[in-house]
Structure formats: structure tokens, C-alpha cells
Design a protein around this nucleic acid. Structure first.
Length: 164
DNA sequence: GAGTTTGAAACT
DNA sequence: CAGTTTCAAACTC
């Protein structure tokens, strides 16, 4: 298998700190007063990694995307119009420093589905197409949202019919 | 933790 | 629009 970081290492548009340097900064113990934070500030780097660390515990639904750079709707963070913060994703481009690529991806998705990023997401009625989960597992978007399936759904063997 | 199953998203 | 593939999460062992 290829090193998943290879691509990132060779990119020219990434933040000026290499993955290896990042690893060193975050993994090696600080020496005396020589703190990681001081190094970061001295290098005047983007602070997204710092933000990640600080918000790690409160990050809602951290994703674990491997292949999409978190720029497809497969990525929960991206789909919810959030940057990836405290996630376990690889080669993430869903970050302020990749704003150009991010906006391009958003544009492309909106072309395909104008409603994909509507703000009032909670009011959108989901319509699932489940075949095997009986709509009673979190594979089903309706079930996951805590809502019964409706006539809009095209599911088979649905048992997600609410309390009735 | 590894492998399987699932259905949305993406693609053709 | 329908069929197929890709993807990441849910789930199982």
C-alpha cells in the first residue's frame, strides 16, 4: 500500500509545515522551556492544528475519511458545512487553508444538487432507500435522524413507522 | 482491531 | 433516469 501521506508531502499548496515536522512537534517531548506552542508561534504557521487539538474533545461527529479529502458529501463534517476539527481524517482539505479547493468542491456539489448545503438542514425531510436494514439501524438516515419514514421514502420492509 | 454490511453519494 | 461503483459509517465477530 502506498503511504497515504505521500501525496500530501509532495503538494505545493499545503501549509508550510511538513507532516514530518508536524509529527516531530506533536510527538516529541518538549525540552525545557522549548514548548511546541513557542515553536509554532515562531514559525508563524496557520493555527488549524492547534485549533484541532484544543477542540478535539468537543468536536461533533468527527469523521474518518480516507480518500475524499473531506470534500465530498460522504464526509459528515463537509456535508454539515463544518471544517474538520478534531477528526481522524487523512489528507483533509476541509480546512481554512484549502478554502479554494473547498469552495470549488462546494460549487460542484451545488451544481448537482442545489439543496445539498441548505442551512435549515433539520427541517429537510429525508427520503431513504433502505433495502436490508428495515430502517431500524443507523444506516437509515430517517432512523438516524429520529424520524419515521414517510411516503417519500423508497425503502423495503420498513419498520421505522414511528410510535403510532 | 479486523472484517463485513449497508445505503448515500458519486459516477457512467 | 437507471444501473453501477465508491465511500465512510454502522455493525459484527
Amino acid at each position: 500500500m502506498d503511504n497515504p501521506n505521500k501525496e500530501e508531502i509532495s503538494r505545493g499548496d499545503m501549509s508550510p509545515i511538513s507532516p514530518f515536522t508536524k509529527f516531530c512537534l506533536t510527538s516529541l517531548p518538549s525540552i525545557g522551556n522549548f514548548s511546541i506552542r513557542a515553536v509554532e508561534e515562531a514559525m508563524d504557521i496557520e493555527n488549524e492544528e492547534e485549533v484541532k487539538t484544543e477542540q478535539q474533545e468537543t468536536a461533533p461527529n468527527p469523521c474518518g475519511c480516507q480518500r475524499t479529502h473531506c470534500l465530498k458529501l460522504y464526509c459528515e463534517c463537509f456535508a454539515n458545512n463544518r471544517y474538520c476539527i478534531g477528526c481522524n481524517c487523512h489528507n483533509c482539505h476541509n480546512l481554512p487553508s484549502y478554502e479554494n479547493a473547498r469552495e470549488e468542491a462546494v460549487k460542484q456539489i451545488i451544481e448537482r444538487n442545489p439543496g445539498a448545503f441548505r442551512e435549515d438542514f433539520s427541517t429537510i425531510q429525508k427520503a431513504c432507500h433502505c433495502k436490508r436494514s428495515n430502517c431500524v439501524k443507523k444506516y437509515c438516515e430517517c432512523y438516524e435522524a429520529g424520524k419515521p419514514c414517510t411516503a417519500l421514502c423508497k425503502c423495503e420492509g420498513c419498520k421505522n413507522v414511528g410510535n403510532q
